[in-house]
């Protein structure tokens, strides 16, 4: 098929416009991700490395710190993401109701945490949950036990989960609010006239209609949580005794805190890549349209 001169000129312009971005993506994403695959086949520390084949993968399964980091990350993911998405949905539905007063005020307040830097809010949480700090004062005021929030493995995990939930619930809520505005009000009108109770409206209308957005937010939350770093680094530093250590933090430690073992660090990073891929596929599969 003969191309017109105009067509060729457009082609040239198109490539020229796209090229800077593609070149940068090539240098700073494609090349490193492939190189990291190659690195994961190398063993050794610092600059003295040798080809080790799948030795690093074997090392993973025998590495208690890796297994701890993996299970911590999965615990954060499995508990935090569903809680946050449920809360965000509930707030969004409440704020979408035109009868609710002060909607703008509530929306702004609940969204506000999403404006903060992760490091800044982490430090705020660390100071609130310090020993004998504000959180302890409040809990003991209501007759609760005196908890060493950041000193006990269980409670340290709880603080991390509370912190992430605080930061991201409003962010997810905004996505649901936008999607709710696109649902035709007459559906709810019809449901109301037919006497469908509010709870059934929520589960039978709202959730199915929002399924694509819920899927989208679940996947971005999953990717985010699998890479959790800033919060644990600044609230607990992975402690106490690795109870909040995450995969990203372990990669960071392997590369930049100890004598660097790039090959093994790259292998751990590929665990995150595989987890992102597998979990995304599972989430798509769960959310698929069933006939």
């Amino acid at each position: 098929m003969a191309q017109t001169r105009l067509g060729r000129a457009e082609n040239r312009a198109g490539w020229a416009f796209v090229m800077p971005a593609l070149v940068l993506v090539g240098i700073f994403m494609i090349y490193p991700i492939l190189w990291s695959l190659w690195m994961s086949l190398q063993t050794g520390r610092g600059m003295t490395t040798s080809f080790g084949g799948l030795a690093n993968i074997q090392r993973l399964f025998a590495d208690p710190i890796f297994l701890t980091a993996l299970s911590n990350t999965m615990i954060f993911l499995a508990i935090q993401v569903p809680i946050m998405i449920m809360l965000a949905l509930v707030f969004a539905v409440m704020l979408n109701d035109p009868k609710t007063k002060f909607r703008g005020l509530f929306r702004t307040a609940i969204f506000l945490p999403a404006v903060t830097s992760l490091v800044a809010y982490s430090i705020l949480f660390k100071s609130i949950f310090s020993n004998d700090g504000l959180a302890t004062t409040i809990v003991t005021f209501f007759g609760g036990p005196e908890i060493s929030w950041l000193g006990e493995p269980f409670w340290a995990k709880v603080v991390i989960i509370l912190a992430i939930t605080w930061r991201w619930t409003g962010y997810n809520m905004i996505f649901y609010l936008a999607a709710l505005q696109n649902i035709d009000r007459s559906i709810y009108e019809a449901a109301r006239i037919d006497g469908v109770p509010a709870r059934a409206q929520f589960f039978r209308i709202t959730i199915p209609m929002l399924k694509p957005v819920i899927l989208f937010t679940t996947i971005i939350s999953t990717i985010g949580t699998l890479q959790l770093f800033d919060e644990v680094q600044n609230i607990t530093q992975g402690g106490p005794s690795n109870a909040t250590l995450t995969l990203s933090q372990y990669i960071f430690n392997l590369t930049f805190r100890f004598m660097p073992s790039y090959g093994y660090a790259a292998t751990v990073s590929y665990v995150i890549v595989v987890l992102v891929a597998v979990l995304s596929v599972i989430q798509f599969w769960i959310a698929r349209d069933r006939k």
């Binding site: 312009a13 994403m29 990203s248 960071f252 790259a266 992102v276």
Partner: peptide, 28 residues
Amino acid sequence: FRHKWRERIFAALLLMLSIPFAALMVPL
């Protein structure tokens, strides 16, 4: 601009959105 590879290149880019930074930081 229309090009026969347009959608393929774009889809490849979108796929890369899910590459975690943790996997890039060591080689970078």
